[in-house]
């Protein structure tokens, strides 16, 4: 059974009810009740994988405490993963994991935000909120990968870039901006995978690529639903509505042409089966890399710049 969380999903609540009832003894009434709850549970799981899912439900799934994190995907997908550290300027930021590994026998470079599971890990990983040194480390190593012709894979999962005094002093904005300008110049394929929270500029700083894949229950937005709610309604009580109007789910983003493909998740969400989630991703990642590696570096860069130039052009002209 899942550990209790601050905001359990409907499925978790139902699971708990069923478990409690099963313990409470065997009678016709409880059996009937359990059957009814099971049906509801199935329905809620079906919903979680369908397009009709409420945006807020997806936000909760994207932040689920048991959701696979970057290192879980790294473990499932790559062999001989070798982590590399530090921005050679200031520090090593543990909220950003970078390293080389083999994918289907070929070397790749991987960079991704990392969240922690328990309190100690959460603090070490700073809740997945990266500081300037983390973005600088990612860029430094991406440039190294490009130097050796190794394709780049990024795994995006962050509530946002860290808002703190030290981060501002060391140029949080500059670190993100510089990545946005330098990553497009790298002469190797870049595949971006958004697998949890795509929190604004902190996510985008490693989310520029030639192909963007997004897990079905991940979200990607310019602002969190809580902050949006506090700006518009001056409290957090409207976060569910905010999640809906921000159009932050994978189907929404695909509709706007901001992402390329949606990675299906196992029933109920990726937290139910890490191996299945990774297995679903694998063929899409493999195909994306093959497609991009077929292009020569000039062609790849031309294609990338055209894509980025046309990105999100929603204007009318009079």
């Amino acid at each position: 059974m899942a550990k209790p969380t601050r905001q359990p999903t409907i499925a978790q609540e139902l699971e708990k009810l069923i478990a409690d009832l099963e313990k409470s003894g065997d009678s016709a009434a409880t059996r009937e009740e359990i059957g009814r709850l099971r049906q509801q549970l199935e329905a809620s799981r079906g919903e979680a994988s369908g397009q009709s899912t409420d945006a807020w439900q997806r936000v909760l799934l994207a932040r689920h405490p048991k959701r696979p994190y970057t290192l879980d995907y790294i473990q499932e997908l790559f062999t001989d993963f070798t982590e590399l550290h530090g921005d050679r300027r200031y520090a090593d930021d543990a909220s950003m994991v970078c390293g080389f590994g083999f994918f289907e026998g070929k070397p790749v470079f991987v960079a991704g935000h990392q969240k922690g599971r328990d309190t100690k890990q959460k603090l070490l990983r700073n809740f997945g909120m990266t500081k300037p040194e983390g973005y600088r480390k990612a860029l430094r190593l991406m440039q190294l990968a490009a130097k050796f012709g190794v394709p780049i894979i990024t795994l995006v999962d962050t509530p946002g870039a860290y808002p703190g005094i030290g981060a501002e002093e060391r140029g949080q904005a500059e670190a993100i901006a510089y990545n946005l300008k330098e990553i497009p110049k790298l002469r190797v394929p870049i595949v971006v995978i958004i697998h949890g929270e795509g929190g604004s500029g902190g996510a985008l700083a490693i989310a520029i690529g030639d192909k963007v894949l997004m897990f079905e229950n991940s979200v990607y937005s310019v602002i969190s639903p809580e902050s949006c709610s506090s700006i518009l309604w001056r409290d957090w009580d409207h976060k569910q509505e905010a999640a809906r109007i921000l159009k932050m789910t994978a189907p929404d983003l695909q509709g706007f042409g901001l992402i390329d493909e949606i990675v299906p998740e196992p029933p109920g969400g990726a937290h139910n089966d890490y191996a299945k989630a990774a297995t679903n991703l694998k063929p899409l990642l493999s195909r994306a890399l093959q497609e991009l590696q077929a292009l020569d570096a000039d062609g790849l860069l031309r294609r990338r710049h055209e894509r980025l130039r046309k990105l999100a052009t929603f204007v009318s002209e009079s």
Binding site: A177, S221, V222, D252, F256, A312
Partner: peptide, 10 residues
């Protein structure tokens, strides 16, 4: 929303 965010990349 995310469309504003993507202007940064563009």
């Amino acid at each position: 929303g995310a469309i504003s965010l993507m202007q940064m990349a563009k």
